[in-house]
Structures are given as structure tokens and as C-alpha cells.
Design a protein around this nucleic acid. Structure first.
Lengths: 369, 369
DNA sequence: GTTAGCACTCAATAAAAGTGAGTGCTAACA
DNA sequence: TGTTAGCACTCACTTTTATTGAGTGCTAAC
């Protein structure tokens, strides 16, 4: 059966109205509300065809029609008009971005919050798992007692810290020197390369380079030169630090996920059933699920996932609009807008597209890439 | 009217049953379920008295009774039995704490999650606003272009970072020296003392101390000694850095708040009305509100706030059990269990008390205080 | 002071009736 | 052949009415 222009118009009308009212749309409503120049009876015939094609669904006999997943898909792929952001929206987004320009984490959280407000949906942001890609800086900072604080800064300016316990107390000066050594060696390394073999190799290389670096690093500080057993001591510290770094990597849970606008979900009548609402809230609280949801193909464009296209049962009645904060070929994280299948796709796509456009320029400015 | 032993027993029975069933409790139910040795008619008379005293309420004429806020208060303050944690609960909590021993942030988040699971309520943790109390370490780390990363470590090992933009590019060695200078001066300072006047004083003191420190700090590093215009350049960097630190303080929003177990809320029949549920979710998403909620008297003991005792309208039907992660007289943050007024206070108090006991020892171990 | 008995209240549930938006089908029309 | 008016039918939703039952307050007797 051929999808005539008229059928498309009718499908569009159904989706438009359904997005607004959440009620099944009947032929008479369309005849009245849209000036298609045909009677309700004709529309009825066309609707019958659209249903046969699987684009709309009748929830029960003699009810109006509701778009099917396939119908939404057709709409999103071919029918949906590109919506421009309103000046208000642009101004609002720019304000949020400008206010959080120096902190990527906060930037992502706050933009997600802004998107939730603009779209009236829930939003989720996740840091990309590959976020800790290169070591920019390592610091060992004295803590009280037999421990120090390991600081790890990545090239995206993400900061991770961990307490490392050692056998003996270390003086600040000692740690300072060790910091310098580790810093120059680990700099620009890819964290995921730091497997055990390489850790050993580094430890060895540190030992070798010690003699050549000794004279340049704080030669006159106390407690360093005259400590005979210091060699293996430092080795132990270095190994402990490297282990901690490795541990940070292994902690894949380390990917932070932030959620905003959950309350919006409860405004949609499709979630006025508490069980539905609970399923949704539960899904939004499960980190792993959200990471799966936001993952997948991250080609940097805005994607729409409709209904059961995402393979998460709890979210089969939801659609997701997602995109990744991408600069060059680096993935900083992902953002997703989650709402009922009836959500305003056009607005969601344009808001997400708009925010990425602005944010990309901001991230580029920060990282100078 | 005197609150006889028998009245207390009846009140207790009502609260017990109501906590379990969420249904108003009638005299006949109590007579049957509790062996008080009196008939339902007598219980009815006593209940009438209890209502007169404001301890219980009749939702509508001829319905059973429900505890009032005052009734809960009496129960919590005087009647409630101290419940010991079960071995399972202790083991579970210990596991969570042990797994997150090195990161205070994560520790708080994960224990909150654990508490949510154990109590079937929502939980909230907030870092204490006074968390950034003393500077332990400041680092200026090179970033790309005309910017550097300001790293701030506090004595609780919290790490804050911010990009600072400056006029000219700075070499790593220069920043390293500046780091050292700032480090020794700012060390142990209270951030809240860092108002503008003091910032200026510090800047001056840095300028003064430059000449006396020159010989001890990396004397042979390149690009430092022979740079004639360096004085005011560094001053500008220092001022920028101090401004950034001040900015971090001003950002009171910087207090992170994490929420867990929202889904549990929807299991309570009192929230099966979507409007109630929405109010709750909304409250749980509003950072400021949660901070207010967890704030107040933080004397380190477990506190119970019943119904409208918290002055947040959205949460007037909820109770909160809260406590702060306190070590010595330092406040690391707060944790709160939020549920319906009908929540299991006894369990909540014991779980929170238990977790604080274990966590306190852990935090003490980390900070050596 | 305690209790059995009784009339009364009122939410909650169930059954019945009515409403209305919507359909499919048929026959007439351009 | 496509379009339309007309009509009978469907079915969720709303309203109405009746029924049930847990619970109360009051009174009189123990």
C-alpha cells in the first residue's frame, strides 16, 4: 500500500494531537481541527489503512488511534520539522554554560538540569568511561599518619583522589620529590595502558632514573640524602601509588551519572499509575542501566531511541533522545532526555543539538584542542 | 488527664499496627491482636481519652485511629525500644564501609545507598557546608594555553579544582614554584577567613617573602631567576588563584547532595497518589531544600524530625531521621532517612546509629584525629 | 471501672445505568 | 472510483445506587 501525501498529513495530525493531549485521536477530531478538505468518513478510511500499515494503533475496538513505535519512527526520521531554538532558549542555555565554563563536571550536570527544565522531561548525564584517558598530573600529598593522598589529574581536567596507606610516615619533602618523579614519567600515559606489566616496568624505570634525577630535585631538603634504606622505601611508595592508579581504572563504577527532572516524569499522565512511575524512577536510579542506555553508538549526533528500541524492559514505554559531548574524536560524556514515547521529539532534538553546539565550542576553548 | 500505663500500651499498639498496615486501627483489632485483658469497649473509652490528649486522630468519624505527630513524638522520645542491629545488617554495613574506606565522598554515598536498602526509605547525604574548612594543599597545574588548573585539597582530603585563566602562558616550572609559595602560606588557613582584605594581605606577604624564599625553592630551575618582569606577573597569577579560591567558597551550591532509594518512597501506600509522590520526588530533587532539611542542630547524635516539625511544606507528611558524620568537633556531612511519618523509627535510628559508629572509627583512622 | 448490646456513620466496593467519542459498514453521490 | 452522509454498534468512562463492614459513641447492666 502506498503512503500517499494525504495519509502522511493524517499521521502527522494524529501524532501532533496525541503528543499534546495523550488521548487517542478520532477521525472527527482531525476533520474539525485540521483543514484537510476531507470528511471524517474519508479520514476514517485512511486511518484504517494507516493501521493496516502498522503506523497507528487502536488501543481498543472503537477507540481513536494512537501512534505506534513504527509511526513515531517514521515521524522522527522523515516528517519532523527541524525546530529552531527560540531566543529565550538560546539565552537560557548560554547563561548556564557560561556560569559553569571552568568545570566540565558541573557543566554537564547543569546543562542537563537546564535541558530537563526546557523539555519537561528527565535528563541523564554520564561521564564517558574513557574519560580518564591521559594522565596530566600526579601528586602525592602528605596526609596525617602513614598515608598520603594520591591526586590524579587527567587531560580533561578531571581530578581523582585516593588515600594511599604505606608502612612508614613520609616527610612532605620526600613526597614532593616522588611526585616530581612520577609526574614526569607518567605524564601523557593512557590509563588503560597501565596494566600490571607496565606498572612493573615503570617501577623499574623509576629506580633506574633515580640516580640521574637526585641532583636536580630538592638536594638540600632534610631526611632525604642520608637515609640509607630509602631506595626500597620509595619503591614501595611508588608501587602503592601505581596500584592505586590501577585501582581507579578498575573501578569502572567510577563513571558518575547524574539525573535531573525526575519530577517532570510524574507530570505525564502515562505515569500517573504508580507502578509505571515506580518502574521509571527505579530505572533512573540504576546507574548501570543508565550507562547502558546512554552508551552505544556515540557518533556525536543527536539520536532518538523510541520505545522498545532500547532493550531495557523497564523503559519500554519511554523514548530517549541522546547525544554525546564530543570534541574531536574524544568522548567527554553523554546526555539523554528521557520521556514518554509521546514526548516532544522536535523540541528535544533541537534543544540537545543546540546545547551540544554551544558546549562544544566551550569545551574546545577549555581544552584548546 | 493522666497517661496511664494502659493508655501507653494502647498507643503503642496503635502505632505498631499502623506502621505495619497503614490502615487506621480500631478498638476491636487491638483487643484481638494484643492480649491486654480488656474488651474492645474499654479500649474504645481509652482511645477516646488518647484522642482528647491529641495523641491519636480519627481521619473521619467512625473510622479507626491513627497516631498524631504528637503521638509519634511521644513514642520516639519515650516508648520506642532501642533496637540492636542484626548480625546481617552489621555485616552488610561493614562491607560497604570497608569497600569505600579511602574516599570520603564515595563512603558517604555508598553508606546512604546501603541505608536506603536496609530501611526501605529514601536517603540523602550532604557534604557539610563547613567541609572545606582548612587548606591542606594548593597546587597550580599547567593547562593548555593561558590557563592553569587550581587544585585545592582540604584537611578532610576533599579535592576541589577549577580552571583559572590568566593573561600569559606560564611554564610548568614557574607554576611549580608558585605552587610551593602559595602552599606554605595558605596551609592550614580557614577558607571562610579568606575575605578580600585577607586576600590582599596574603598577596602582599607573598611579594615580601619572595626574596627570602628564592634560595630555598628550586633555585636552578629555568625561566625563573632571570625574568625581570616576573614580580607583577606572579602577583597577577596569585591574585587570580586567590580569587578562584574565594569563588569556590562563595559557591555555597558547591555542597554536593546525593539521594538514594527514591523508588522506595513509591512503595509506601501513602504515596500512591501521584500528587503526593510528585511532591516527594520534587523535594528530593531540590538541593537547597535538602540542605535545609539536613542542617540545623548537628550535635552528632541521631535525631528524629516528625511531620511538620521540619518546616518544609512539601515534606509535611514525612519524617526524617538524621545524623551527621562527626569526628571530634568537625562535621563531615549529614545523612538523612526520609520516609512517611509511619516509618519504622526504631529501625531507622538503630541503622543510622550503627553506621555512624562504624564510620566514625573509619574516618578517624583516615584522618588520624 | 468494665463490658455487652445497639444504633449510627461512612469509606470502600460492587453493580447498574447512562454518556459520548469513536468506529465500521452501506448506500448514495459526483 | 473516490468521497460522503447516515446509522448501528462498541466500549471506556462517569454517575448513580445499593451493599457491605469495620468502626464508633452511648447506655444500661454487671
Amino acid at each position: 500500500m502506498v503512503l500517499s501525501e494525504r495519509k502522511i498529513r493524517i499521521l502527522e495530525a494524529i501524532i501532533n494531537d496525541y503528543v499534546q493531549t495523550a488521548e487517542p485521536i478520532g477521525s472527527r477530531t482531525i476533520a474539525k481541527r485540521y483543514d484537510l478538505g476531507i470528511s471524517s468518513a474519508t479520514i476514517r478510511n485512511e486511518m484504517s489503512d494507516l493501521e493496516e500499515m502498522g503506523l497507528i494503533i487502536q488501543p481498543y475496538s472503537s477507540s481513536g488511534r494512537v501512534p505506534s513505535d513504527k509511526g513515531y519512527r517514521l515521524y522522527v526520521d522523515s516528517l519532523m520539522r527541524q525546530r529552531e531554538l527560540t531566543p529565550d532558549e538560546v539565552a537560557y542555555l548560554r547563561k548556564i554554560i557560561a556560569a559553569n565554563i571552568n568545570q566540565v563536571d558541573l557543566l554537564m550536570q547543569e546543562t542537563a538540569r537546564a535541558v530537563a527544565i526546557l523539555t519537561n522531561c528527565a535528563t541523564v548525564v554520564s561521564e564517558a568511561p574513557e574519560r580518564l584517558s591521559r594522565i596530566k598530573h600526579v601528586s602525592l600529598i602528605p596526609a596525617d599518619g602513614k598515608s598520603f593522598l594520591l591526586l590524579l589529574v587527567t587531560d580533561t581536567n578531571a581530578v581523582k583522589n585516593q588515600i594511599v596507606f604505606v608502612d612508614e610516615a613520609l616527610a612532605e619533602a620526600e613526597l614532593s620529590v616522588l611526585s616530581g618523579m612520577m609526574n614526569s614519567i607518567l605524564k601523557n600515559m593512557t590509563l588503560s595502558d597501565l596494566n600490571e606489566d607496565i606498572a612493573k616496568a615503570i617501577s623499574a624505570s623509576v629506580n633506574n632514573s633515580r640516580s640521574t634525577r637526585d641532583n636536580s630535585a630538592a638536594p638540600s631538603k632534610s631526611g632525604f640524602g642520608h637515609n640509607g634504606g630509602s631506595l626500597s622505601r620509595y619503591d614501595r611508595v611508588i608501587i602503592a601509588a601505581l596500584n592505586s592508579i590501577a585501582q581507579i581504572i578498575r573501578q569502572e563504577d567510577d563513571v558518575q551519572v547524574y539525573t535531573s527532572g525526575m519530577r517532570n516524569i510524574l507530570n505525564f499522565p502515562e505515569f500517573s499509575d504508580v507502578n509505571k512511575a515506580r518502574a521509571m524512577i527505579q530505572a533512573l536510579e540504576e546507574k548501570d542501566m543508565l550507562i547502558t542506555l546512554l552508551g552505544g553508538d556515540n557518533s556525536g549526533i543527536v539520536q532518538v531511541v523510541i520505545g522498545s528500541e532500547n532493550h531495557i524492559e523497564l523503559l519500554e514505554d519511554c523514548s530517549v533522545i541522546k547525544a554525546s559531548y564530543q570534541v574531536g574524536n574524544r568522548n567527554f560524556g553523554s546526555i539523554g532526555v528521557i520521556g514518554p514515547k509521546r514526548m516532544n521529539y522536535s523540541q528535544g532534538v533541537s534543544v540537545l543539538g543546540g546545547i551540544l553546539k554551544h558546549i562544544n565550542s566551550v569545551i574546545e576553548a577549555i581544552c584548546g584542542e
